[in-house]
């Protein structure tokens, strides 16, 4: 790390100093290209975010790539149904590292208002790791922009070496996740235990029901 005062002095002379980490993170966070992936109603708010009023392009998300091979952010906007879930996981697998997932809207977080449905997947985080959750039904465009900026801040804070390094620099972490198959009654498997642990409803000793998360 370079001393701040020295940095300022140097920059006045026209010499800019930075670390490789800062440069790397700045480059990635300022040009996050989302995948063109809208599922349901939240997609319309996502489109509104890219339009002239809320303009996501000024944050670096200039182009929404139709091909997953060229995208680094997947904004899962809308309900993920069980029929669509294998395709979502496949698309996630096809994205090259480093990749991020934003779960936009109540349906992508946990199934949302359609949670009781037999065809509704109760949250995309059952199969793929999610970085940010945006609550709302649908979330306002400002909420999506806030989430986008939060993701940018997170990327800026990433350390490239050490135990907290991001997933793509860690050879042990998987970057592809198994795709669920269509079973006779449900998807097989119903969720990915490496990615998602079921929160438990706890029943206390006295018999009155209490709930808590794990």
């Amino acid at each position: 790390m370079v001393d701040e005062k020295l940095k300022n002095e140097l920059s006045k002379q026209g010499i800019f100093t930075t670390t490789l980490e800062q440069l790397y993170n700045w480059g990635r966070s300022s040009s996050l290209w989302p995948l063109n992936f809208g599922l349901a109603c939240c997609a319309i708010e996502m489109i509104a975010t890219t339009m002239a009023r809320y303009d996501m392009a000024r944050f670096g998300a200039e182009v929404f790539r139709p091909s997953p091979r060229q995208a680094d952010l997947m904004i899962v906007a809308g309900t993920v149904t069980k029929k669509m879930a294998p395709q979502v996981v496949r698309l996630y697998n096809q994205m090259p590292e480093p990749k991020y997932v934003i779960s936009m809207g109540a349906c992508a977080i946990s199934g949302g208002p359609f949670k009781q449905g037999y065809n509704v997947l109760k949250g995309i985080d059952r199969y793929i790791p999610v970085d940010l959750y945006i609550p709302g039904c649908p979330p306002r465009p400002e909420a999506l922009l806030d989430a986008f900026m939060e993701l940018q801040k997170r990327i800026d804070r990433q350390q490239l070496t050490g135990a907290n390094r991001p997933r793509h620099l860690n050879a042990d972490e998987p970057s592809e996740f198994p795709v669920p198959r269509f079973g006779a009654h449900d998807l097989e498997p119903a969720n990915n235990p490496n990615v998602w642990k079921a929160p438990l409803v706890q029943i206390s000793q006295t018999g009155t029901d209490e709930s808590g998360s794990h």
Binding site: L39, A40, C41, I44, G78, T79, T81, K83, M84, Q87, P113, F114, Q116, G117, Y118, N119, V120
Partner: peptide, 28 residues
Amino acid sequence: GYLHRNHEKIAESETYLGSMPYTDRLDY
């Protein structure tokens, strides 16, 4: 069927007024 969200089945367990917000999400 990629967005089949079981609106009709859910409506059978909701009251009449309770289905009104779900109709918003039909043709969004």
